[in-house]
């Protein structure tokens, strides 16, 4: 090399020259910790209602569960003790499972088409996928209600479980497409070319290379779809008829005071979901460290 590095003394002289003043450093320190401190406050704010939900699951309440009246294990011992609450939970889980599977399959296929192919009508398809996400839920709920009442009822499909599932698949679909599409786009197309170059037919290329690589995206999309479906109230409220989902049960009950059993179930769902997510993270990090050894 024809260039030589500057002598060490010059380097250190430069770093002293650039060292910020004490006041400046204090300011920087404060700025750094401002972000972290406010982040912690925001996280506490996010958890506050969850803490309330948890606390009031132990409330020994009478007719309404609004004001603290005393501690009891009663609601945790029999979460299904209130009529309808566990039925609505089962309905929500069923709706969530079916909608997630269908929306994830259809959405993944669409995402593959959108990234991997050129075709007439691609930008129209893009709009069709985007607009449902930009439409307020209440408008979708209203529109679905009119078509179900005025159209589907005539062919024997009344408001209920089926119409809830149809609607949930619809609004989950766009979110699945967007999530999976991002994953496929981040995939180096050369990796698929390499598979073909190494004698993999298009089918083998998909199942041996493409699919395993986009699987995390598909699983993420499925999780998103399930949580959207499980927690949806506004659209469900329009299209459910007499069927009760868990959010709908809670909403209806909220007028008289939500029974603490609902808090038990709501908080348990929270714990299960967090354990699943943390567990998945833990498994993947253990797997990664195992490979490193």
């Amino acid at each position: 090399m024809s260039t030589t590095s500057p002598p060490a003394s010059a380097t250190s002289a430069r770093s002293t020259a650039y060292r910020p003043s004490a006041a400046k450093r204090a300011q920087v320190w404060l700025a750094n910790h401002f972000a972290i401190l406010s982040a912690i406050l925001v996280l506490l704010y996010l958890f506050l209602p969850v803490a309330y939900t948890f606390a009031f699951s132990f409330n020994d309440h009478g007719k309404t569960n609004i004001v603290w009246q005393g501690f009891t294990w009663e609601h945790w011992q029999d979460p299904c003790g209130v009529p309808g609450v566990c039925g609505s939970l089962v309905t929500s889980l069923q709706v969530g499972a079916i909608s997630t599977v269908v929306a994830t399959v259809l959405g993944t296929l669409m995402a593959l088409a959108m990234v991997r192919y050129r075709f007439r009508g691609k930008s129209a398809s893009n709009v069709l996928i985007f607009v449902p996400m930009a439409t307020p839920e209440i408008v979708m709920g209203a529109a679905l209600l009119t078509i179900f009442v005025q159209g589907f009822a005539n062919i024997g499909i009344d408001l209920g479980f089926t119409t809830i599932v149809f609607s949930h698949i619809m609004f989950c679909l766009s979110f699945v497409v967007v999530t999976v599409r991002a994953r496929i786009q981040s995939l180096d197309p050369r990796i698929e070319e390499a598979a073909q170059d190494l004698y993999a037919s298009p089918m083998q290329t998909f199942w041996k290379v493409t699919f395993p690589l986009i699987l995390p995206g598909i699983l993420g999309a499925a999780m998103l779809a399930f949580s959207l479906s499980f927690d949806d109230f506004i659209i469900t409220n329009f299209v459910s008829g007499n069927e009760n989902t868990f959010p709908k049960f809670v909403y209806v009950a909220s007028r008289r005071g939500i029974p603490a059993e609902a808090n038990v179930i709501g908080f348990s769902m929270f714990v299960i979901a967090v354990l699943l997510v943390v567990g998945a993270q833990f498994v993947s990090s253990v797997r990664a460290s195992k490979v490193k050894e």
Partner: peptide
């Protein structure tokens, strides 16, 4: 996880908690 986790509790329950 902390950002997403509270949203595993029902939307209605959290609003009622507020």
């Amino acid at each position: 996880i902390c950002v997403i986790a509270p949203f595993f509790t029902s939307f209605i329950l959290r609003t009622f908690a507020w």
